[in-house]
């Protein structure tokens, strides 16, 4: 029997008459990286918010690290690290002050915080930038600082909502190197992304469309099922099938059309 860090059953969230998340169930084993894929507005962020204990579900059950999603939101928050697509740190605070602030929000005592800050600054490659205002950092560095703040309290689960959106390819690779190292150290990671190269690194991929979970498998399983090693093609195939609308099948086709003019 596998031990799940995050387990949800029949989770549904309605906003008025609109169903944002429709009867989703999945389990993420401890220490795995779960790639949560789906078009914009498909319900990824709503699901994440419920898992993080910020939004209460309309129906369904769920636990994070064994804590109930309805009753133990405080405990869940204490054990989850979250980082969003938008840089959510204070640009007018220095690197040091940002880490300090989040550290004290998680009630870490001063001595432990000082040591932890050193580790994280090292990890994020921000040594020497401690006194720089966060707003003056480059996009890649900002993301790493945000990751550092999300890890300040040594969370067992890390939730990343499009962490690399708008980040250059070099920084993206560096970022994912850190992510896989964290996973190796036993942290469970839930990540949403639109980059298929990133998704292929994940241990499990879940595909959500219009609030429903369409499929959940390992990247290898998906490749075999669809007879292709291109995750992007699989993604497009799902969207065009489910939305019954014509999706441009590949960038190659677009390029050919364009040069044909």
């Amino acid at each position: 029997m596998m031990e799940y860090a995050i387990e949800i059953q029949n989770l549904t969230k309605k906003f008025g008459s609109f169903t944002a998340v429709n009867d989703i169930s999945f389990g993420i084993p401890k220490g795995k990286i779960f790639g949560f894929l789906g078009p914009n507005g498909s319900g990824k962020s709503t699901t994440i918010r419920m898992i993080c204990g910020v939004l209460s579900p309309t129906s369904g059950r769920g636990t994070v690290l064994g804590y109930d999603m309805y009753k133990d939101t405080e405990r869940i928050k204490q054990n989850i690290g979250y980082m969003s697509q938008k840089f959510g740190l204070y640009e007018d605070l220095t690197v040091d002050e940002n880490l300090d602030f989040y550290g004290s929000i998680y009630m870490i005592d001063a001595e432990e915080l000082a040591a932890r800050k050193m580790e994280l600054i090292e990890m994020a490659g921000l040594a020497g930038k401690e006194k720089a205002l966060a707003g003056t950092l480059s996009g890649g560095m900002k993301q790493k600082l945000a990751l550092g703040c999300a890890l300040i309290h040594r969370p067992k689960v890390l939730v990343l909502d499009e962490p690399t959106a708008g980040v250059d390819p070099v920084s993206r690779r560096e970022f994912w190197k850190v992510i896989t190292e964290l996973s190796n150290s036993g942290i469970t990671i839930l990540v949403t992304t639109h980059y298929m190269d990133e998704a292929s690194i994940c241990d499990i991929i879940g595909f959500i469309y219009n609030g429903s979970l369409i499929t959940m498998d390992t990247p290898e399983g998906l490749f075999n099922k669809h007879n292709t090693r291109n995750l992007e093609d699989i993604f497009i195939e799902y969207v065009s099938k489910l939305s019954s609308k014509e999706v441009e099948l590949s960038f190659k086709d677009i390029r050919i059309k364009r040069s044909g003019v």
Binding site: V54, E74, I80, M83, I105
Partner: peptide, 13 residues
């Protein structure tokens, strides 16, 4: 306005 509330609501504060 700056979007920092997004990060903050995820913490136990």
């Amino acid at each position: 306005e700056r979007g920092t509330i997004e990060q903050l609501i995820m913490t136990p504060v």
